[in-house]
Amino acid sequence: MEAKVEDRPAMTVEQPAEPKETDDAAPAALGELKIKATDVNLWYGEKQALFDVNLEVFGQSVTALIGPSGCGKSTFLRCLNRMNDVIDICKVKGDIRLDGEDIYAPEVDPVQLRARVGMVFQKPNPFPKSIYENVAYAPRLHGLCATKAQMDEVVETSLIKAGLWEEVKDRLDAPGTGLSGGQQQRLCIARAISVNPEVLLMDEPCSALDPIATATIETLIDELKENLCIAIVTHSMQQAARVSQRTAFFHLGKLVEVNDTSTIFTNPSDQRTQDYVTGRFG
């Protein structure tokens, strides 16, 4: 049973073309393999939080991680940009490759990795600086812009991509913390894409937002995926169904099932997935 579950993602990779014949829409949207996680185990102190997780994340698409609270989906997401390194007692074992390169190899600097793998958090967390400075923060750190004009352009492009430009272009000097919740979250997205990351990790980006702001962000995610590989943790199954092409279901620290979103929601192969997506627990 367990073995069968763990095999599943591997099968999907080996035969990416096969589902294409049976299912026309979703698999066609997938880009190249971006992240491949193999046998990831994770401990917080003595407590093991992830058990042998195997998952692929593809480019130009959205992968949703769903599951009940405490199932390890956020923890797994934070492994992908080594955000868990910040926590002293956290220990990660296993192999995670970004474009075939082991991100936990000793020669990889997590700081550089995080510039390639951006992150948007559950609660909007703009810095207590101006809107402009919030977006300019990372490009300035990484020395991406030599002149003020270039920086202005980066800030504008990022804000346009995040769908916030029209609302804030007249008040770029206003504090970022003064925006509404949904605007703050889009500001955080603009901040994250200002350094052109290859992957964007989103940890329940809409859980603190109202339905209208959520709809705006979902539209945004749909647009961003054209050039990005996105992994999103969400509690809302409707959201997973709306924005993602592939869905992974986590339960008790284990990856139960991963497949095309439509398959997961209509014809899951595992009973637990079935129970969760139909609302019988979680």
């Binding site: 940009n81 955000m83 910040v86 700081v111 550089q112 990795l113 995080r114 510039a115 390639r116 951006g118 992150m119 958090f121 609660k123 967390n125 703009p126 810095f127 207590p128 923060y137 990372a138 750190l141 990484h142 955080c188 901040r191 994250a192 350094v195």
Partner: peptide
């Protein structure tokens, strides 16, 4: 200072 600000900054590749 909220931990989320630190994470936000680390998440952008700041040391």
């Amino acid at each position: 200072v909220p931990q989320s600000l630190r994470e936000g900054s680390y998440g952008l590749g700041a040391t």
